[in-house]
Write a protein that binds this DNA or RNA. Structure first.
Lengths: 236, 236
DNA sequence: CTCATTATCTAATCTAAATTAGACTATAAT
DNA sequence: ATTATAGTCTAATTTAGATTAGATAATGAG
């Protein structure tokens, strides 16, 4: 492992040559793992992608499993951060269903277009050995909390249909998004189209049907009849 | 391989001892593969589950890959047959969206409660080596055709919202269902609840909102009154 | 310039499974 | 009973990769 005091270039721990090589290996592992799957991930392939020899990996990671586990952990962590930041950037009064829209879009874009780590984590969740799986679950739960909250808020606001069981609805929605890793490919369709379709599908799938008759919205009781178009969008 | 003319019990090819052992191995492989994944499936585990010794597998299958490929092929084939039969059993005048309801329910029930083969096929679709994957794709396309038709019919009948891109919508719906293998477990919730939630989610997710005010249902050409709301896109 | 360490390489080892060999057993036809 | 063949077992053999050993290079500190 990279020791401390010695002949090391920049005292900066985050950008030393060592740190960069480690990153390169991690990136390479995410690349391979996201495409070949847990079984198909050879340290030889990772090394090749990182432009080193396989044994050099052991200078930074104590084993193949440890390397893979870190990739998967990073994958979920970054996905969570990405979605969380997108949500935090929304105006505080954004309607619950619009927040879900954002989460759907960011989850999809992040895993499909941005991060091999997220793809690796999602696609291999059910393939890794027991012990990795267990620790991974803890991290996944944290991400799940975001969605739990999103749906819960929608429910409180009366925007969620009552016939939906919250947990099942949440997992089904996440499943629709996660599974996109299995079929979407930039060569056969635009990501925007997928995002647009997913947002519509999820919104209408969850939302209480709007009774928009010309008679005027009946502001019965509480905060129904939301509407709230939020900020500039990327809709076509 | 089981030869022909010799000391064989029943001339019936489908129920010979040989055929039954072969089945047992196939079932065992589906059992293990559906739970442990492609990487984790050891012939030793399969053999144990089938109550034989590992090398005996080679009497029926020429290699681990051949065995796994057959499990996966059977998985998709049976899933397709199951869903197809359920659809054929419906009254001929069943509305497109009700047919989709049926497909959702049967797909879910079959994979979650009935067939390890379907689970194995779905969960490992993206994990098997290239050559298996390619052949598997052909079989999957046949199943996909059922769904393509379902959505297409719904579209023709004006029951499908126009803002949904058909292929993306189909894959997202199938993803929601397929992913259930990753999280559903009989110990933490009733399958009925999942099925009910999925049906509702999919129906409302796809369907043109019903204007069930005192007038009749008006599947008018355009989709008026659209919802606006667009997330704040592309966050930094 | 020389040294201490880091970083990386090449050449073994090790090991878990898959696969093969070859013997043994069970069964039904004769 | 005898025997041919199916079916199964135990004991090798093989092999792909992970992991280790043991040099060898690179580099900043002094």
């Amino acid at each position: 492992m990279p020791r401390k005091s010695a002949g090391k270039p920049p005292a900066d721990p985050s950008d030393s040559k060592s740190a960069r090589t480690r990153e390169r290996i991690l990136d390479a592992a995410a690349h391979v793992l996201s495409r070949k799957g847990y079984a198909g991930t050879r340290l030889g392939d990772v090394a090749e992608q990182a432009e080193i020899q396989a044994p050099a990996i052991y200078y930074y990671f104590s084993s193949r499993e440890v390397l893979i586990e870190e990739v998967m952990w990073v994958g979920v962590a970054r996905l969570r951060e990405h979605v969380a930041e997108a949500l935090e950037a929304l105006p505080p009064d954004t309607a619950p269903m619009d927040r879900i829209d954002t989460a759907v879009e960011e989850h999809l874009r992040f895993q499909l277009a941005i991060s091999d780590f997220a793809t690796a984590a999602i696609r291999n969740a059910g393939q890794v050995p027991e012990d990795i799986r267990t620790r991974q679950l803890a991290e996944e739960r944290k991400y799940g909390d975001i969605w739990r909250t999103l749906l819960h808020d929608a429910q409180k606001a009366g925007e969620l249909r009552a016939d939906l069981e919250p947990r099942a609805a949440r997992m089904l929605v996440l499943g629709a998004l996660n599974w996109a890793n299995e079929w979407w490919n930039p060569r056969q369709g635009s990501l925007d189209v997928v995002v647009r379709t997913a947002k519509s599908l999820v919104r209408h799938g969850l939302e209480v049907p709007t009774t928009r008759e010309q008679g005027g919205a009946r502001p019965s009781g509480g905060s129904r009849g939301r509407r709230t178009a939020t900020s500039a969008g990327r809709t076509a």
